[in-house]
Design a protein around this nucleic acid. Structure first.
Lengths: 332, 332
DNA sequence: CTGTTAGCGCATTCAC
DNA sequence: GTGAATGCGCTAACAG
């Protein structure tokens, strides 16, 4: 009678226990990854029964009692935040290697966040990694019912730990590089200035340029994209300067394509060009753009350290920082 | 006494019910997205209480009884399978808009699949979308305890439905384009030939070339990557032909960079170059490569049709197909 | 319309 | 070592 109902559903631990002729508790212990007290022969019988039935534990049910779901939420604006595929590949691979799974949330806009918040369309997770700058720590904590949220978007509201690249270092190096090559005037091509990260980045550039005696003659606004780079490069405001600093590699690529003639044999003739992000441009011969990057391995390992031991990161105090560095290529 | 224990844990529906002075069932109904019978005033009290407590349902517990988790597994080899960010952005956005979440699995290798299988390191999900060609339908069904797996990797073992681009169409158009331009000899640059998709693709090229009287003088092996494209282009076997067909855009990019001089002003001089995938190359002026693509909207909408009504796709019979087409650009 | 009850699948006391 | 009993948070089924 029981078996008839069970036909279309997965075998549960009770089925395994029954087949092995032991209690559910014993079956549970034998199947546990930690070593719990079970006699050898019973353990063997349980394992055999589980194998025979093709038993797979229902992780959802398990998490109901263990209070840990082994789910990590990764929150981005768009998938395009993944433009650095290497970074995300490393991150996801590492998360999986500690036995956790990634649940993926694309928010796209602030309204979407609020909608998720209202409808509770989100699982309770062990931790949340926030790359989106539409989301604040408080909202994320409420959405996922998790106190362990790590801000990776450059926002640091003091209530949650964060790990951020220390952009000041790389920017200082890039500007120093320009100064050493006799650059006296420069333009700055910026992205979404509403973002606090971008504001900080711009401030860093200005400070370093002031320090090095480089005069900022123009500030042009893009949106990080290749197309916006082309846009500013073709605009009437496009200035004549010794150097152009961009807050993204993609914009630098667009600028380079518009001004190909300024880089005969890829060497800078009219102005030196600096990007940001250190995309794997090095792959593409057509865009040998000097840039600013950081070591992805250390960045990801800090994130994993948080997932493993969140308590080490304190009560929202910790702001872990990874150094950036200048990567010289042909365009500078 | 109860309240003291509750301090550090989320409010449950029982707390809401208590505060509202109703039974748990009533609270459950009032909070349900579907309209269940509840009197107006009680519903109001429940909603108010839930709001006051900041109640968010535990979706895990819910799915234990409803048997539906609203989780869709997306299985890829590497995140680099996401190279088509537009496609995945659309996909994930659409999945979320029907109230489901994406859980993300990177398998990387066949061994990894088996490991997941052994350890049951996977949730039961409503459906699985398989982009990885390391995974067969049977394994995925077992891993996720779901009968609804959709093969998107070109493998169609008859036990699961699939949606695949019909590459024959685009390939025929591309080869026809070459023939119309007087191409008489061609080389084929291939990717991972162990993949069934790739084999089919190669077969299509050969068939069309035979039909159009184009002689295949060389078959060079890459691995889809930009670097491998550069590799074959620099190898001693690199032939002199009227056209080069590549089974990926990235390889075509590598070839183009090595043979820049063959494309003065981006127009083909020594040979015509054809890629595959139709990456958003159009963005990058430096790589105006003719390619083969398909409409991502229809592709994604077919996937969503599966998620909404899997039964329409029959018992593993359905092989839905979306047409590909040739996208002419400067290099041909 | 409403409240009570009984599970969902699992891990975990606590006695034996 | 073992097993019966209990509960995680929620919804479905059943009576009122």
């Amino acid at each position: 009678m029981d078996s008839s109902r069970k036909r279309r559903t997965s075998p549960t631990i009770a089925d395994v226990a029954e087949l092995a002729g032991v209690s559910r508790a014993i079956a549970s212990r034998a199947l546990s990854s930690e070593s719990r007290p079970v006699s050898a022969d019973k353990r063997a019988r349980v394992l055999e029964a589980a194998d025979k039935l093709g038993f797979k534990p229902n992780l959802l049910a398990r998490s109901l009692t263990t209070k840990t779901v082994n789910l990590i939420a990764v929150i981005v604006n768009h998938i395009h935040d993944f433009s650095d595929l290497d970074l995300f590949d490393l991150l996801i691979s590492d998360i999986q290697s500690i036995g956790k799974q990634v649940i993926f949330l694309r928010v796209g806009s602030v309204e979407r966040i609020e909608e998720f918040l209202r409808n509770g369309v989100a699982y309770h997770v062990d931790a949340a990694l926030v790359f989106s700058d539409f989301a604040d720590a408080e909202s994320v904590r409420k959405m996922f019912r998790s106190d362990d949220v790590l801000m990776l978007n450059g926002m640091h509201d003091g209530s949650s730990p964060s790990v951020v690249p220390n952009e000041a270092i790389g920017i200082a190096e890039a500007v120093a590089d320009a100064a050493s090559k006799g650059v006296a005037t420069a333009a700055l091509v910026t992205g979404r200035v509403s973002s606090p990260v971008e504001q900080q980045r711009i401030a860093n550039y200005k400070a370093e340029m002031a320090k090095r005696g480089i005069r900022l003659v123009a500030e042009l606004r893009g949106d990080y994209s290749y197309q916006s780079g082309r846009g500013v490069a073709q605009s009437p405001e496009w200035p004549t300067t010794d150097a152009v600093f961009c807050t993204s590699d993609a914009m630098a690529m667009g600028i380079m394509d518009v001004h190909r003639d300024a880089f005969p044999g890829n060497r800078p003739e009219r102005f030196r060009l600096y990007g940001f992000d250190n995309l794997s441009l090095t792959d593409f011969e057509a865009y040998p753009i000097s840039s600013i990057g950081y070591d992805k391995k250390t960045y990801v390992s800090e994130i994993l350290r948080f997932l493993a031991t969140p308590e080490q990161f304190g009560n929202g105090q910790a702001e872990v920082t990874v150094p950036t560095f200048f990567v010289p290529r042909a365009t500078s």
